Amino acid sequence: MTLPTVAVGALGGTIAMTPAHPGEPVAPGLEAADLVRAVPGLRAVARVRAESLRNLPSAAIAAEDLLVALAWARAQVDARAAGVVLTHGTDTLEESAYLLDLLWDRPEPLVLTGAMRPPRTAGPDGPANVFAAVVVAAAPAARDLGVLAVLDDEAHLARWVTKARTTGVGAFASPGAAPVGRVVEGALVPTLVPAGPRLPALPAPAAPGPVRVALLECALGDDGALVDLVVEAGWAGLVLAGAGAGHVSPATAEAVSRAAARVPVVVASRTGSGPTATRTYGYPGSETDLLRRGALLAGSLAPRKARLLLWALLAGGAEPAAVRAEVARRGSAAS
């Protein structure tokens, strides 16, 4: 039987980090070929071609790096790869996965994976995660699911996945949903069927350019001053992580009125799970009040992902009506 081809592109992260000297903190050092070579049994799953694209800690990954990875992944699929794996640091993996998911326009799986433990420690999880990621990337059942995050033998949709704890394996979860599959005995076993078909990809920006979208969390006693500062500083858009089902203080609500007259303002929930409300509360700073002031509600999109959606829309040149429509439909719990 001819094995499928899976392309593995390395971007860096803990999975590629080693200490310069024994006992010292780790930093990026290993290349894609090193990561693949460390995985027992991989040759029985797929023919793997590996390439190093970047070697950065995940906090240093920028949109420019992801656009490079996107173009590379597309080229691999066009060269008949059954799927693509990108190794990535776990700190921002959920954000990179979601941005790539917005732009990924192929049926073949694009899988992100990483590691919580560096290679030269007791029980490194990188090799197992690469193995599982390649299994998923090669699996026909993973087609048309968009971008997946695969760690600890679980496959999560980019739309829902988040890093739920700072250390230890099993750190990734899908609040409000669940893994769509698990890797068992070297095969992908689907566990959850998405509620509907995947939404079409957004146009990929030719280059990130100067588009900047701010993310602010609304805290107790917030006076809205930071909202005004962001707009006055020339940012192109703003996402607010509001309390509860998408609520802010009365003073911040006044600032939202001023901001929404100039730039798109999206309000998400800071709780970590569940959608913003639309018609439950009616006080100043509630969701109905913010809608009247011109804000958009993120639905079940987490604030970090709402920011990436707004950035992708603005960087892609979307008009205000398109921004409003895309935020509404991609924030739907079923999307």
Results as ranks from 00 to 15, higher is better:
residue 115 A to I: 00
residue 48 V to N: 07
residue 193 V to Q: 15
residue 255 A to F: 11
residue 98 Y to I: 01
residue 240 L to Y: 01
residue 4 P to S: 13
residue 279 R to N: 08
residue 257 S to Y: 10
residue 294 G to R: 06
residue 189 V to Q: 13
residue 49 R to Q: 12
residue 300 S to E: 14
residue 212 R to E: 12
residue 294 G to W: 10
residue 89 G to N: 14
residue 53 L to C: 04
residue 88 H to Q: 13
residue 155 A to N: 04
residue 41 G to M: 13
residue 299 G to I: 07
residue 136 V to M: 03
residue 216 L to G: 09
residue 316 G to Y: 10
residue 334 A to M: 02
residue 176 G to S: 04
residue 89 G to H: 14
residue 186 G to A: 03
residue 14 T to L: 14
residue 334 A to S: 05
residue 272 G to T: 12
residue 195 A to K: 09
residue 67 L to T: 09
residue 332 S to L: 07
residue 290 L to R: 04
residue 33 A to Q: 15
residue 195 A to W: 09
residue 211 V to W: 07
residue 317 G to Y: 06
residue 289 D to T: 07
residue 304 R to C: 05
residue 119 P to N: 01
residue 287 E to V: 10
residue 204 A to D: 02
residue 331 G to L: 02
residue 71 A to G: 12
residue 202 L to T: 03
residue 74 R to C: 10
residue 116 M to S: 01
residue 228 D to G: 15
residue 98 Y to D: 06
residue 278 T to L: 12
residue 16 A to H: 08
residue 125 D to K: 11
residue 78 D to F: 05
residue 182 R to T: 03
residue 320 P to Q: 06
residue 21 H to R: 15
residue 225 A to P: 08
residue 47 R to A: 13
residue 131 F to Y: 14
residue 164 A to M: 01
residue 156 H to D: 00
residue 284 P to R: 06
residue 222 D to C: 15
residue 225 A to C: 08
residue 247 H to Q: 13
residue 17 M to W: 09
residue 177 A to T: 02
residue 155 A to Y: 00
residue 297 L to G: 11
residue 199 L to P: 02
residue 28 P to G: 12
residue 235 W to P: 00
residue 224 G to P: 06
residue 148 L to D: 01
residue 96 S to E: 10
residue 16 A to V: 05
residue 16 A to D: 06
residue 151 L to S: 01
residue 270 R to P: 03
residue 7 A to V: 14
residue 163 K to I: 02
residue 301 L to H: 08
residue 233 A to W: 06
residue 200 P to T: 03
residue 107 P to I: 02
residue 26 V to T: 15
residue 264 P to D: 03
residue 99 L to S: 10
residue 256 V to Y: 14
residue 237 G to S: 10
residue 323 V to N: 05
residue 36 V to M: 13
residue 108 E to T: 00
residue 239 V to G: 09
residue 3 L to S: 07
residue 317 G to S: 11
residue 83 G to R: 06
residue 255 A to S: 15
residue 274 G to I: 06
residue 51 E to T: 10
residue 225 A to D: 15
residue 144 D to I: 01
residue 300 S to T: 12
residue 222 D to W: 15
residue 298 A to S: 14
residue 140 P to Y: 03
residue 112 L to Q: 01
residue 280 T to P: 00
residue 298 A to K: 08
residue 260 A to K: 06
residue 68 V to M: 08
residue 199 L to R: 07
residue 246 G to M: 08
residue 60 A to V: 08
residue 17 M to H: 05
residue 172 F to C: 07
residue 102 L to K: 11
residue 20 A to S: 15
residue 138 A to K: 09
residue 199 L to T: 03
residue 318 A to P: 11
residue 289 D to M: 01
residue 178 A to N: 00
residue 248 V to H: 07
residue 100 L to E: 08
residue 191 T to E: 13
residue 80 R to I: 04
residue 152 D to F: 03
residue 61 I to V: 15
residue 124 P to N: 01
residue 53 L to H: 11
residue 3 L to E: 05
residue 20 A to G: 15
residue 95 E to H: 13
residue 217 E to C: 01
residue 200 P to R: 03
residue 183 V to Y: 00
residue 177 A to N: 02
residue 97 A to W: 12
residue 247 H to V: 12
residue 81 A to I: 06
residue 226 L to A: 15
residue 25 P to A: 12
residue 278 T to I: 05
residue 4 P to E: 13
residue 290 L to P: 05
residue 137 A to V: 04
residue 137 A to W: 04
residue 65 D to T: 06
residue 152 D to W: 02
residue 45 V to M: 10
